[in-house]
Nucleic acid binder design. Structure first.
Length: 359
DNA sequence: AACCCGTGGTG
DNA sequence: TCACCAAGGGT
């Protein structure tokens, strides 16, 4: 680590840099713990720039724990639409209810209580406690891991449990006695803006004279790359079924992939099937009806974490059979112009925009 | 421990 | 087109 003299230099370099360079963010306007909590949920695996408009809209609709705790899940998910990892939204709602019921609406200020909130792990607990409550608690996110591993030439064997533990212990040992919220944010902001994954801007870095990677010219080698997971490619056919000026939508089951969101029915194309054969089979399986397939509305590509989808969307009508959906929580016939009242995954939002442009 | 969970930007 | 990755958590 650092000698006593060096750690003071390290703290002042980093905190002075942060005081000069920190970006404006809406959740930095004040230290309301609820605002910090919401921002940290949204920022999980999501970049600042993406989060900002969602955060502002969220705060207009759900300005307090009490207001969020009283909200309907569908409204909450609608505000999360397009942000991804939708279990975060469901967990944030559950956390608000828990805070309202068990903590009189005040975000708890102890590590143990924070960790009991659904969707709050060690990172989020540390972030809220240090930023909102000025407590001496570390954080460790993707940025911090990268900065730290370069600064100290750590994590040489990739991200196993042992090196994770070492990284947490190191962050804890580096915390200053005061301004831990700023210190933690500075570490993350340095990673996000200077100590970049590729082509780090070492000449602009306030820690360049302390950084072992920079001093040895090994910045690009740290942290070591993890072996990338295989991305599979699938083709999906989806149906926009029209009936008397309405279209059919269904709500996905509560947990799992995009749980609680609405969608157009359809499914994965199997080997040897045409787009239309796939759609007829899927709709028969899911809804129990035979359809007549009209013209293709659009083909979209969409990428998820572990697979890429080519989505073929068709206009359809029910030809025969009794509608009896089996795979979903709920289903509805709605007017096209009402579709934007329901939360949909991003791939479906593209379709809806097209529908409402053409009608 | 390994895998699941979204989306958009970047080069 | 494609790999990489982001203020991670749950199981």
């Amino acid at each position: 680590m650092f000698s006593p003299g060096k750690i003071n230099h390290f703290h002042s370099q980093l905190l002075n840099w942060f005081a000069r360079q920190k970006r404006e963010m809406p959740w930095r306007k004040n230290l309301d713990p609820y605002r910090i909590l919401v921002s940290e949920f949204m920022l999980q695996q999501t970049q600042v720039k993406t989060v900002i408009p969602y955060f502002n809209k969220w705060m207009r609709s759900f300005p307090t724990v009490k207001r969020l705790a009283a909200a309907k899940e569908s409204d909450v998910l609608k505000h999360w639409e397009g942000l991804g990892y939708y279990s975060r939204a469901r967990n944030l709602l559950r956390s608000a209810i828990q805070i309202q019921n068990d903590h009189s609406g005040k975000v708890p200020d102890t590590f143990q209580e924070m960790m009991r909130l659904p969707g709050v792990g060690r990172y989020t607990a540390g972030a809220v406690l240090s930023i909102a409550f000025d407590q001496k608690v570390p954080v460790l996110d993707g940025n911090v891991k990268r900065v730290l591993s370069r600064l100290m030439l750590l994590n040489e064997n990739g991200s196993n449990k042992k090196s994770e533990t070492r990284l947490w212990e190191t962050m804890e040992s580096l915390l200053p006695d005061k301004s831990c919220g700023d210190f933690n944010q500075a570490f993350m902001e340095l990673g996000a803006t200077v100590c970049l994954p590729q082509n780090p801007l070492c000449e602009e870095c306030p820690l360049k004279k302390l950084c072992k990677a920079k001093l040895s010219g090994k910045q690009e080698l740290y942290p070591p790359k993890k072996t990338a997971a295989k991305i599979s490619k699938i083709k999906v056919s989806a149906a926009v079924i029209f009936r008397k000026g309405h279209v059919y939508i269904q709500k996905r089951k509560g947990k799992g992939l995009m749980g609680g969101l609405w969608e157009f029915p359809g499914g994965k194309r199997e080997a040897g099937e045409t787009e239309e054969e796939c759609l007829r089979r899927e709709i028969k399986e899911e809804l129990g009806v035979n359809i007549r397939i009209g013209e293709k509305i659009v083909t979209h590509r969409h990428s998820y974490t572990r697979f890429r989808v080519t989505l073929d969307v068709f206009q359809c009508r029910i030809h025969s059979g009794k509608l009896s959906p089996t795979e979903c929580d709920e289903w509805k016939w709605v007017k096209p112009e009402e579709l934007d009242q329901f939360p949909f995954p991003a791939a479906n939002v593209k379709i809806i925009k097209l529908l409402n442009k053409n009608t």
